[in-house]
Deep mutational scan, measured.
Amino acid sequence: AQEYRALYDYTAQNPDELDLSAGDILEVILEGEDGWWTVERNGQRGFVPGSYLEKL
């Protein structure tokens, strides 16, 4: 798994998404072809927009 940093804040719109704060460090589990990536942070897993992340 790769570590990424959130570039922007994101507020989850659905229960299966995660909130992001700019600067958060996340582990990317799966890069979805639809642009939604499965990530894990502090034991929580959910979808976030891949375009909001940069690889560390």
Rank of each mutant, 00 (worst) to 15 (best):
D19W: 02
L56C: 05
Q2V: 13
Q2Y: 10
L30F: 14
A1K: 15
P49L: 07
S21T: 15
T38E: 14
R41T: 07
Q2A: 08
Q2G: 10
R45I: 11
Y4F: 09
D16G: 13
E3C: 08
R45P: 02
G46T: 00
T38K: 15
W36H: 09
A22P: 06
Q13A: 13
A1L: 04
S51L: 11
W36R: 15
I29D: 05
L18S: 02
S51F: 07
Q13V: 10
Y52A: 11
L20I: 06
A1T: 12
D9E: 07
W37A: 09
E27V: 14
Y4P: 00
Y8A: 14
R41N: 09
E54H: 07
E3A: 07
A22H: 05
G46M: 02
L18T: 03
Q13D: 09
D16E: 15
S51V: 11
L7E: 04
T11I: 10
V48I: 04
R41Q: 08
I25D: 05
Q44H: 11
G43N: 06
G50D: 04
G46L: 03
R5I: 11
G32M: 06
L20K: 01
F47K: 15
W37H: 06
N42I: 04
D16V: 07
I25N: 12
D24Y: 02
Q2K: 09
E31R: 12
V39W: 00
E33C: 07
Y52T: 08
W37D: 04
N42D: 14
Q13F: 03
K55W: 05
I25C: 11
N14G: 11
E31W: 05
V39S: 02
R45V: 11
L53V: 15
Y52E: 02
F47S: 14
D34Q: 09
A6H: 00
E54D: 05
R5G: 03
V48L: 02
G50S: 03
E31V: 14
E33I: 07
F47C: 13
P15S: 12
I29C: 10
I29A: 09
D9G: 08
N42G: 13
E17K: 02
E40S: 11
Y4Q: 02
A6I: 07
L7S: 07
Y52R: 04
V39Q: 01
R45Q: 13
